[in-house]
Computed example of a mutant assay.
Amino acid sequence: MKRIATVALTALAPVSWGSTYYVTTELLPPDRPLFTGVMRALPAGLLLVAAARTLPKGAWWWKSAVLGALNIGAFFPLLFLAAYRLPGGLAAVLGSFGPLLVIGLAAVVLGERAGTRAWLAGIAAAFGVSMVVLKAGAALDLVGVLAGVASSASMAAGTVMTKKWGRPEGVGPLALTGWQLTAGGLLILPVAALLEGAPPALDGRAYLGYGYMMLLNTGAAYWLWFRGIGRLSATSVTLLGPLSPLTAAVIGWAALGQALTPVQLVGMAIAFGATVAGQLAAARPAGAAAPGPVAGSFSKAEQTHRKFSMDLTDGRVRR
């Protein structure tokens, strides 16, 4: 039950991200992907850092910068660039291949040997998403396609490295999320100023859109996402990703009056079924301990005591 609850809470992150395409196209100023990335990440990061009252120490200064670049600093601008230059459906399909990248990287970096079922779940989810969002005659934009692929690769690498590095001792996911959002936002800020110039004039709809994306779509969603990475395998977390384009399709139907064809409904069923199956098939890293607090969350004395207790349970004491 505890794992089910963790999966359910983590799933709220991609569900929230499914609203990104709607908010971007309906509420935000056009053609400002870098400014949008800054507004989404930096204020949320600073708020979380202030709430956590914890700053990085030692190696975590550069680790936070690397994770912030992968998960935020590169991912956000590329994601918005793809969303602006591609039909929403095509951008979503490119993003749906991210889980396959994570499964491959997790095998190499983390030793998570995902079985055939996990790979099939990722492929089936991408196929289902394509049935939902792709339309005949969708125009291809090379820059948009490259941005979509690069954003998926960046997020995949960030997910795997977040799992690999864990968190510092005594630091929770709130602080880790704040560090990454702040680092990512600061990386985007000078690039946005150089390439896009002064911020655009904002109306009430834009303030509403940016407020929602900063607080819920980014701050709360990324906190749940990184919390899930700390408690689940990288494969399990990433296979929740298809919920994002499925949510986008539902929002398009409910908010924009977009009809859902029988083919799209079948695709939704395939993608959702693959997402559920992926949670059952997701493999833990080879030789991993049972799920529990993230690495580094116990003191050395507690680790020694736990190891000694496990040795006694197995009927042996190592010296």
Score class of each variant (00 low, 15 high):
residue 235 T to W: 00
residue 236 S to R: 07
residue 294 V to C: 03
residue 206 A to Q: 02
residue 249 A to S: 11
residue 15 V to C: 10
residue 113 R to S: 03
residue 165 W to Q: 05
residue 301 A to W: 10
residue 171 V to W: 00
residue 197 G to K: 05
residue 290 A to H: 01
residue 124 A to H: 08
residue 141 D to H: 12
residue 293 P to I: 04
residue 21 Y to V: 15
residue 319 R to G: 13
residue 207 Y to H: 14
residue 80 F to N: 14
residue 71 N to H: 08
residue 75 F to Y: 14
residue 44 A to Y: 02
residue 4 I to A: 13
residue 38 V to E: 00
residue 152 S to V: 12
residue 255 A to D: 12
residue 142 L to K: 10
residue 228 G to Q: 03
residue 230 G to I: 00
residue 12 L to V: 09
residue 50 A to C: 10
residue 102 V to C: 01
residue 25 T to D: 15
residue 210 Y to S: 04
residue 305 H to E: 15
residue 78 L to P: 05
residue 74 A to F: 13
residue 5 A to N: 00
residue 77 P to E: 08
residue 228 G to C: 06
residue 214 M to K: 09
residue 278 G to K: 03
residue 232 L to Y: 12
residue 70 L to N: 04
residue 203 D to E: 14
residue 269 A to N: 07
residue 135 K to Y: 02
residue 161 M to A: 09
residue 172 G to H: 01
residue 126 A to H: 06
residue 173 P to C: 00
residue 303 Q to S: 14
residue 155 M to G: 05
residue 316 R to K: 13
residue 293 P to G: 05
residue 264 Q to Y: 03
residue 277 A to Q: 02
residue 277 A to V: 08
residue 154 S to M: 06
residue 207 Y to I: 12
residue 272 F to K: 02
residue 282 A to F: 04
residue 64 S to C: 02
residue 152 S to F: 00
residue 53 R to N: 10
residue 12 L to M: 14
residue 268 M to G: 14
residue 49 V to C: 13
residue 53 R to A: 14
residue 26 E to W: 06
residue 31 D to N: 15
residue 215 L to M: 12
residue 293 P to D: 11
residue 129 V to S: 00
residue 54 T to H: 07
residue 193 A to F: 11
residue 259 A to D: 13
residue 20 T to P: 08
residue 252 G to S: 09
residue 30 P to W: 10
residue 250 V to S: 08
residue 309 S to F: 08
residue 54 T to Q: 13
residue 316 R to Q: 07
residue 14 P to N: 09
residue 110 L to D: 01
residue 60 W to K: 02
residue 95 G to P: 03
residue 28 L to Q: 08
residue 87 P to L: 04
residue 162 T to L: 14
residue 153 A to I: 08
residue 197 G to V: 12
residue 203 D to V: 11
residue 195 L to N: 02
residue 95 G to K: 01
residue 29 P to C: 10
residue 4 I to V: 09
residue 170 G to N: 01
residue 100 L to N: 02
residue 13 A to K: 08
residue 278 G to C: 07
residue 146 L to P: 09
residue 4 I to K: 01
residue 57 K to A: 14
residue 206 A to K: 02
residue 59 A to V: 13
residue 56 P to R: 00
residue 112 E to W: 10
residue 68 G to P: 06
residue 85 R to H: 12
residue 171 V to F: 00
residue 278 G to V: 08
residue 254 A to Y: 09
residue 206 A to C: 05
residue 243 L to N: 02
residue 121 A to Q: 03
residue 134 L to C: 04
residue 136 A to K: 13
residue 203 D to F: 10
residue 317 V to Q: 03
residue 292 G to Y: 07
residue 253 W to M: 15
residue 150 A to W: 08
residue 21 Y to L: 15
residue 150 A to F: 11
